[in-house]
Nucleic acid binder design. Structure first.
Ligand SMILES: [Mn+2]
Ligand SMILES: [Mn+2]
Ligand SMILES: [Zn+2]
Ligand SMILES: [Zn+2]
Lengths: 138, 138
DNA sequence: CACCTTATCAACAATGATTGTCATCTACGA
DNA sequence: TCGTAGATGACAATCATTGTTGATAAGGTG
């Protein structure tokens, strides 16, 4: 994800307007590695802008997704997770107790077996390791 | 997944009762490779038993899941998919156009990189290949 | 085989995440 | 500065799923 200034330019370049709400969402996401839910972003932004609505956060997150500045992940924790790390291909660790999501480098080989490669055009591969994070280990 | 007779025994063994509705759900799932949604099972069963309720199908599917006779997959298509193939470890192809889900043999190496293996206890790995199935290819 | 207990049934309401509607407001290019 | 496309926020609606409940029926027991 780019920094807020560049994101501002990109939004305007698409004919979209840059509002304090959008700026606050972007600021919160830049460099964030926690894979927050929309709700979590909402709570963070509300600390600055108490009147912001959840709908606006959804809106902004979707616009950033359309620009390719974030990715929206469904890792099975109930709500979509927002991932600003779009620069590096990577996979995810999901703690099934606390819901924490962490990045995994893509050393894992994820080629579709040749037999099926002819009958399916793969556009993306998602690998999710589920288990317990160190803080939640028994 | 076992056959209907064995499933019947297993349910009774758990003190659960075997009803025509449950039998119909099980019959539909045995050998089914389509990864149906609960709604799809509901529609199929309703053809035989018009009075069956969606809740009952959810109920049955959850009981079968608790028995380990099916697995409930969230592959990001909106509704849970029911997978009676619990015998073989495998991963999934998901067509992003029609929602079809197909099995992939687990030839893919899915070991967590050593660096992170110490800080996370993996209990399951899910690999989802997304793209276009042959019927939906442009 | 009839009884009794208790799980199941089906209708209905409720949930939680997300999206749609719409009247009002505002950013920003002209 | 102005006009307007676009954003905002309050609110209702959606969709998959779960909770509740009175009525029903399975099946172990005698
Ligand atoms: Mn990530
Ligand atoms: Mn499968
Ligand atoms: Zn954890
Ligand atoms: Zn398809």
């Amino acid at each position: 994800m780019h920094d807020v200034d560049e994101l501002t330019d990109r939004l305007r370049g698409e004919g979209l307007r840059v509002t304090p709400q959008r700026r606050a969402v972007m600021q919160y996401l830049v460099g964030n590695t926690s894979h927050p839910t929309v709700e979590a972003i909402f709570d963070a932004v509300r600390a600055e802008l108490p009147s912001v609505s959840l709908k606006t956060v959804y809106q902004t997150v979707h616009d950033l997704d359309a620009l390719g500045e974030v990715r929206l992940l469904d890792v099975g924790t109930g709500a979509v997770r927002v991932d600003p790390n779009v620069e590096h291909v990577h996979h995810h660790l999901v703690c099934q107790r606390c819901g924490a999501v962490r990045d995994v480098s893509p050393e894992v080989a994820t080629e579709l077996p040749a037999a099926q490669r002819r009958r399916f055009t793969v556009t993306s591969v998602e690998v999710i390791f589920r288990g317990r994070c160190d803080r939640c280990a028994p």
